[in-house]
């Protein structure tokens, strides 16, 4: 197992009740997992915990056999080697596309940085936009730059928080397919968060159905979605 989450308990400071209680979950190497759930079910929070942006009150997180977080250890986000594409992209507004992508390439010299940047721009099909600023790009273009930026440092795990939410439906399909293609080609372990069943079905090797901080079901897309449909129709009857 590439990512292992054990007995994780987490509560936001200003809420009474923990969002996660003794949550256990794992992700296989090279797999594309999709976390599917309604708004407020805790999908973003789970990604933040894996990335090290939130501190759990109990439990442990392991990535690639290494302990990221348990009672006595806490690996800072910058040391985890985890890429995260944020829900609203979070491209640095004061940097060009080029600078944004080179931002995470700390261990390379200038030539290597340039080469890696160009490589990624080609992958996401944005070769001509290196000198633009984020506000000069469309939503879909920003999304691709965010993807390139997250992939540039070669993370062992990449996570996407609702990457398609700001796109119109046509662009959504196109980018989804592109992304799937890129992920397959690079063989990188990835976790997707979405509330759209279609997306989940199209892109996921595995679906994790989340509701109110709890895992309701997990498994192959067809099975999970089939089951949830049956439940739904049962409820209607």
């Amino acid at each position: 197992m590439f990512v292992q989450i054990k007995d994780l308990t987490f509560r936001y400071k200003n809420s009474q009740k923990p969002l996660f209680e003794n949550l256990s979950l794992s992700f296989k190497q090279g797999e594309v997992s999709v976390i599917l759930g309604e708004s407020g079910s805790g999908k973003s929070t789970l990604l933040r915990l894996i990335a090290g942006l939130e501190v759990p009150s109990k439990g442990s997180i392991l990535i690639d056999q290494a302990v990221m977080n348990d009672t006595f250890r806490f690996v800072q986000p910058e040391k985890r080697g985890v890429g995260l594409v944020f829900q609203d992209y979070a491209l640095f507004p004061h940097m060009t596309v080029e600078k944004n992508i080179k931002f995470g390439l700390t261990k390379m010299n200038r030539k290597q940085k340039q080469a890696r940047m160009e490589e990624l721009l080609t992958i996401v099909g944005m070769e001509d936009y290196a000198s633009r600023y984020p506000y000069e790009l469309s939503g879909g273009q920003q999304q691709r730059v965010a993807l390139a930026r997250a992939m540039a440092p070669n993370p062992s795990l990449i996570m996407f928080d609702e990457p398609f939410s700001n796109l119109d439906s046509k662009l959504q399909l196109q980018i989804r397919d592109e992304l799937q293609e890129i992920l397959k080609r690079t063989g990188i372990t990835s976790i997707f968060v979405t509330h759209d069943e279609e997306d989940a079905r199209a892109i996921g090797d595995r679906i994790i159905l989340m509701n109110n901080g709890k895992i309701q079901d997990e498994g192959r897309p067809e099975m999970v979605l089939q089951k949830s449909k049956e439940k739904l129709s049962l409820a209607y009857v």
Partner: peptide
């Protein structure tokens, strides 16, 4: 969110401060 983005890209709090936050 920009600080968090910078940290997941491998920058420490202090580097983030000078490269992102302050700007």
């Amino acid at each position: 969110v920009f600080t968090e983005a910078s940290r997941t890209l491998g920058m420490s709090v202090t580097k983030t401060f000078f490269k992102v936050d302050i700007k």
